[in-house]
Computed example of a mutant assay.
Amino acid sequence: MKTKSLFKNLFTGAAVLAVSVFISSCSKNDVDDSGTASIKVVNASPTSTPQGFYLANKTIVQSGLAFGNEKDYVITNSGNNLELQFRNDGSATAYATGTFNVDRGKTYTVFLAGDGQSARVKLYEDDLTAPASGQAKVRFVHLSDAAPASIDIRNAGGTNIVANLGRDNASSFVAMAPGILSLQVYGAGQTTNLGNFDITTLAAGKIYTVYVAGSTAGNISVQKITHN
């Protein structure tokens, strides 16, 4: 009986320890105090008021980030289950919140997307390796609630640059020739053009993200941010 009791106590203790380790590993804002990552912050929410941005309750952008604006890379702590928040200027409560793992040594761009009840936080890892000589490098992100759930992004000649890009997803970075980039946005595989958009001149050696935003048919737009 004593042997059974001993094994029972050992099993119970091991189970409690395992649960404790599991809970610890899943805790919110598990900040890596010795690790850092770089984060660029973008407001892609057309009807939002100016925003601040916070990571694990740490102020990254204090205020004033209006739609279409970006804040250049900020070095901050890495960690697991980090709470990322956008807040209206002057507010202590979140306009949109998301929880993400942020790996040490990596580079990310975080977006405020959507409007009102559909507002959300989206985080994408960046590839900042240099473009091929004489080329720019561009990634496309679908953040529009007004556009179809999947879209094709085509050049002025109607050829797909990116096909079947799902909402809240990012394409890989692709090489693009320098110059003005003229785009058309369609529902994936569809024939109705949602709009023609000219992106200001791409420069050789530069890295960009082009994102589609808009919560109504009237405010669909295509915006460009620069990574380097």
Results as ranks from 00 to 15, higher is better:
Q184L: 14
L181S: 11
N101W: 07
I161Y: 05
T192S: 15
G158I: 14
Q135M: 15
A130E: 12
V162H: 02
R120G: 06
I153H: 11
F140N: 01
L128Y: 02
A119E: 03
L112S: 03
D168F: 06
F100H: 02
R167I: 09
T192I: 12
G116F: 05
G134F: 05
L194N: 08
L112K: 05
V162C: 02
A147R: 05
V162E: 00
F197H: 09
D103Q: 13
D115I: 00
P178S: 05
D198V: 07
A203G: 00
S171H: 10
P178H: 06
A204T: 00
G158W: 13
A149W: 09
D115F: 02
G189P: 10
D103W: 04
H142L: 06
A156P: 02
L194T: 11
D145Y: 13
S118P: 03
I161C: 06
S133Q: 14
A146Y: 14
A119N: 05
Q135Y: 14
G166H: 08
N196P: 09
F140A: 02
F100M: 08
D145N: 15
G105A: 02
A203M: 00
F111Q: 00
V121Y: 04
P178D: 02
I199C: 01
S133F: 13
A119V: 03
T191E: 13
T97H: 08
S133L: 13
A156L: 06
F173A: 05
D127Y: 11
A204L: 03
T109D: 00
L183R: 13
T99P: 00
L194H: 08
A149P: 03
G157F: 12
I161K: 07
A188K: 11
A177V: 06
V141D: 03
G105Q: 03
A177D: 13
N101A: 11
N193G: 13
T159Q: 15
V185S: 12
L112P: 00
T129A: 11
V185E: 10
P148Q: 13
L165K: 04
A136L: 06
I199P: 01
N101M: 09
S118Y: 07
G166I: 09
L202E: 01
T129H: 10
A177I: 04
A149H: 09
S172G: 12
A170W: 02
N160T: 10
E125L: 12
R139L: 06
V185R: 11
G98P: 07
L128F: 05
T159G: 13
Q117N: 10
I161Q: 05
A163M: 10
G116P: 00
S182T: 15
Y186A: 13
H142D: 05
